[in-house]
Design a protein around this nucleic acid. Structure first.
Lengths: 210, 210
DNA sequence: GATGAAATCACCCATATGGGTAATGGACGG
DNA sequence: CCGTCCATTACCCATATGGGTGATTTCATC
């Protein structure tokens, strides 16, 4: 069951000392092999496509192309390679852009060597590892935003609106007249401070009202 | 800096053995105190509101109200209490509903005692801990779905559509005629297989096309 | 040099939408 | 008992929208 396969790991990090430290860690640990070390995204793009490592540790702040864009491009050609961001950045922007780009792990730079190695293993086994502080941002994005105080009926109508149904269709489904549907929609618009369906749907999706 | 404050932990778990094991773990570990143990959501609702523990370990599968709904209700009255789901369920539905309900941690039942204690600490310090397999689902939800092959121009128009702009407004912003905007929108609808703005916006938001 | 995709624009037409205004009955709380 | 909120319905009207059809230009690729 447990095949202790050797994991090939590449590292992209512009700081010389940090890069060497990680490289040494990888090389000095059984079960891991260094699949490349780069100090900029451009070189990494070329080198990593060739070496096809299992896992890539990627810094975000690089001179030239940043690590996130680098992940985005590499993930396109190497969909089976896993990327772990290893960075000091902990703002929502960096985190969400990284995950959208295809990162499956996100570690803060203060992670211990053990944590880094553990993360590599987990990610390679199909898991995902995110530093607790970062994970809080991620789970927070799942919480519904402030309730706009829609009534039950209005929520029903809003849900139908998001499915692209028109007055008549909604009316039939809820067994009320199209005029009533219209009245509810007007009320919804007022509460959401919008005046078109598109905006209402956007808000509903963004704030997970449906 | 480091005040080793005692963390009060409650546990909601219908399995007798599991509940007692966790309770014993909490009581037997320095720095933790048991703030209640319940075998169903209804009792937990009453008991936890009174005892106001720092962290709650919550099972999902309970007889009667499930753990997710229990978290949703408790989080309303105890917004500062942290909830960690501790469950065998690993489907997307359970995970996303839990996070929406207000859980900040999600551990699979096979987590070790050390992992549970560590998760409690991290969550209590403002972090979030998610089992790697579960986290993969979560980060996966940030990846854009299959590209519908929209052209650059079409993506620009789609973005404006999501902001609730009409033909004229989009036309002015992109320095083209309203008729052209209309043509682009028709093309977008065809590619997304929709025929209203609401549906287009819904898809764009869901699949993170914008 | 042909072919095709993209972007641009125009016109017609039926229907949908958003905004304004007004009214009625039920439920609930003070 | 009164006020308020909610759900319900109706009507008018200007504009927006979606669907159909057709055309031109540019540009890259074969």
């Amino acid at each position: 069951m447990e095949l202790p396969r050797i994991i090939s790991v590449a590292v992209v990090e512009d700081d010389h000392l940090a890069r060497e430290a990680i490289a040494a860690l990888i090389e000095g640990t059984e079960g891991f092999i260094l699949g490349g070390a780069f100090d900029n995204a451009e070189d990494a793009l070329r080198g990593i496509v060739d070496s096809e490592p299992d896992v890539v540790l990627m810094d975000i702040q690089l001179v030239g192309m940043d690590g996130i864009e680098c992940v985005r491009r590499l993930k396109e050609v190497l969909p089976h390679t896993d990327f772990i961001m290893l960075t000091v950045l902990d703002d929502e922007e960096s985190v969400f852009r990284s995950l959208s780009a295809g990162a499956t792990g996100y570690l803060q730079k203060d992670a211990s060597m053990e944590e880094v190695l553990h993360a590599i293993k987990e990610v390679h086994e199909g898991g995902s590892v995110i530093s607790p502080g970062i994970a809080r941002l991620v789970v927070g994005s799942f919480r519904p935003r402030s309730e706009p105080g829609l009534t039950d009926r209005e929520n029903e109508v809003l849900a139908r609106l998001c499915d692209g149904e028109n007055y008549r269709s909604i009316a039939e489904r809820l067994f009320i007249s199209a005029n009533t549907v219209k009245a509810h929609i007007k009320s919804i618009y007022a509460k959401l401070h919008v005046n078109t369906r598109a905006e209402a749907v956007k808000l509903a999706m963004r704030d997970r009202l449906v």
